[in-house]
């Protein structure tokens, strides 16, 4: 069989385009990520800029409270998304997905914070939905009328640094049943 066929040349060209396309989107300046914007699935062009140029130095925290049916307000409670570190997590760490997802969502919220219609953004809705679920799972699930949440960031184990508040939500009506997704 002939070693180099047109099919192989095509495969080489596609792989080279993939490599070059990846390389063009790896600068520290996101304004050059033009090719990445065209990556519909968002993972065809890998992003190799791990913890660079400057890594995040904060943990995002979500606090929430409820206005109950008798008009009283519950104290602020923290949304739990990650637990402490154990050795097993070096190879098995399903909880990491949610803490990473919270960080991703919080970064998106940061980018649209203060824009008109901010409360209609997917990232805001996701956080609102996550808080509503936490309320459902709490002792106040049956009595909550409205909920409110705030996003803050802190220095993690470094208690010397005061937490910084990112935003406080408006009062949101609480839906006890959630909005169950009916799949296709």
């Amino acid at each position: 069989m002939k070693e180099t066929t047109w099919q192989l040349r095509l495969a080489q060209t596609v792989a080279a385009a993939w490599l070059i396309g990846t390389a063009t989107t790896q600068t520290p300046w996101r304004t050059l990520d033009k090719a990445r914007d065209k990556d519909f699935f968002q993972n065809v062009l890998p992003n190799w800029r791990f913890f660079a140029p400057d890594p995040a130095r904060h943990d995002f925290r979500v606090l929430f409270r409820c206005r109950l049916d008798d008009g009283t307000e519950t104290p602020w409670a923290a949304l739990k998304v990650s637990s402490g570190r154990k050795l097993i997590q070096s190879i098995w760490f399903p909880e990491r997905r949610e803490s990473k997802a919270l960080t991703d969502t919080a970064i998106q919220i940061h980018s649209v914070l203060g824009s008109p219609g901010f409360e209609d953004s997917p990232s805001y809705k996701l956080l609102r939905g996550r808080v509503a679920r936490a309320v459902r799972e709490s002792e106040h699930g049956n009595r909550c009328v409205d909920l409110q949440f705030l996003l803050a960031k802190d220095g993690g184990y470094d208690f010397a640094e005061a937490p910084e508040y990112v935003f406080v939500s408006r009062l949101e009506p609480y839906e006890p049943a959630g909005s169950a997704y009916v799949g296709v």
């Binding site: 800029r49 803490s99 993690g156």
Partner: peptide, 30 residues
């Protein structure tokens, strides 16, 4: 490419150059 990018883009970050990046990451719970 992956290693080179990861290394050189870090060099562009001030906290890597002044060696604060590692403590900054390690202090987070996440």
């Amino acid at each position: 490419l992956a290693y080179a990018v990861s290394g050189w883009v870090k060099v562009c970050g001030e906290t890597w150059r002044n060696a604060q990046a590692l403590p900054n990451i390690m202090r987070t719970v996440d």
